[in-house]
Write a protein that binds this DNA or RNA. Structure first.
Lengths: 187, 187
DNA sequence: CATACATTACCGACCGGTCGGTATGTTAAG
DNA sequence: CTTAACATACCGACCGGTCGGTAATGTATG
């Protein structure tokens, strides 16, 4: 068997970057070829289902990344404050302080939601649930923890929207600050 | 002069709906033709600049809609609570309880940001500024009002992201509830 | 009132280019 | 010498955009 020039992880990383910058509809095969340094036939060798399969694989890749960078630290944290701090740190680097976009959010807003709804839904459900379990470590009642988690994720996603729209990173960084802060948040 | 079958407002409304559902890249001229019941040549008669000019006009249209439905009520409100309630009501209907998307946000996240950055930035800046002025009516210091406004808009936008991603309207409705609630929010 | 004319809305065929996708190799490592 | 990785030539469909033309309306003129 001939060895692959690019590991599958590396491939998914590069494809992810294209989808993040251009969205599903906006990303052309030429874009994906250039990003991976692969010709069309080679791309279809790895992803016989074409662009759709690439996006599906990339979404699963994003969920794995989050599992390692965000969800696991949340679960392993002994206190809610520690977990929130770890999440905040991870998000700041993954989203490049708000300059880069959340692919599941972008695809959820657009028409690609129809095709990839399950993966998108799973991603956010897992994020919110894991976060709620972390908040419950401080004794917060389950229902309240769920609402507070939903609010945090909404605040973060809105922070990304504003950061991108305004061309400034501060709205995102302030949203992260609110997540870390013990005072603000749910009543 | 021949009278137009569709008023320009009606035209922009229908184009807006297409861009909201498919995004800028995803909306094809055929889609836009079907939505307006106009042939290609007619569309180019009204928008010589093509799809780009249509999107530009639609963004301006959205800002006018918000001016009438959201900004004006905010300015005219005598108390912050009244203004927030009016905004909340307007947003719930405009976003169809979270089922429909915010076009400036969608375009800001995608690649179309490069082309329409100014309009997108203006929209959100105006929203946040108008909201901050409303909060200042209750005596909130200017800087704090600006941060609180930014948080509210972020929370709402995040609510839309989550509502779309999860296929449920509740995350958006709860975000609106937080905006209306006097207790929660900025510390 | 009639009619000529300018103006504008609208139409649909057509353009070159790019789209996503496929079929058929060629290369190289086990 | 099999098999996976990679490459290339090619396809029909669709893309955004252009263009020559037609139909309907307002206005100026007689």
């Amino acid at each position: 068997m001939r060895k692959s020039a690019l590991s599958r992880e590396e491939m998914l990383d590069r494809l992810l970057e294209v989808f993040r910058q251009k969205g599903f509809e906006g990303a052309s095969l030429v874009d994906l070829m250039q990003a991976t340094s692969l010709q069309k036939g080679s791309l279809y060798h790895h992803f016989p289902g074409g662009k759709g399969e690439m996006a599906e694989a990339v979404l699963a890749h994003v969920e794995r990344l989050f599992e390692a960078m965000v969800f696991a630290p949340l679960r392993e944290a002994t206190t809610a404050a520690n977990g929130l701090a770890a999440m905040s740190r991870a998000l700041e680097s993954y989203f490049a302080s708000g300059a880069k976009v959340c692919l599941p959010a972008l695809m959820g807003l657009g028409a690609s939601r129809d095709q990839f709804g399950a993966a998108i839904e799973g991603f956010f459900e897992r994020w919110i649930d894991t976060l709620a379990e972390t908040l419950a470590k401080d004794g917060m009642p389950a229902e309240q923890a769920l609402f507070a988690s939903e609010q945090m994720v909404a605040d973060i996603q809105g922070g990304i929207v504003l950061a991108r729209a305004l061309g400034r990173t501060e709205p995102f960084l302030r949203a992260l600050g609110r997540v870390r802060a013990p005072t603000a948040g749910a009543e």
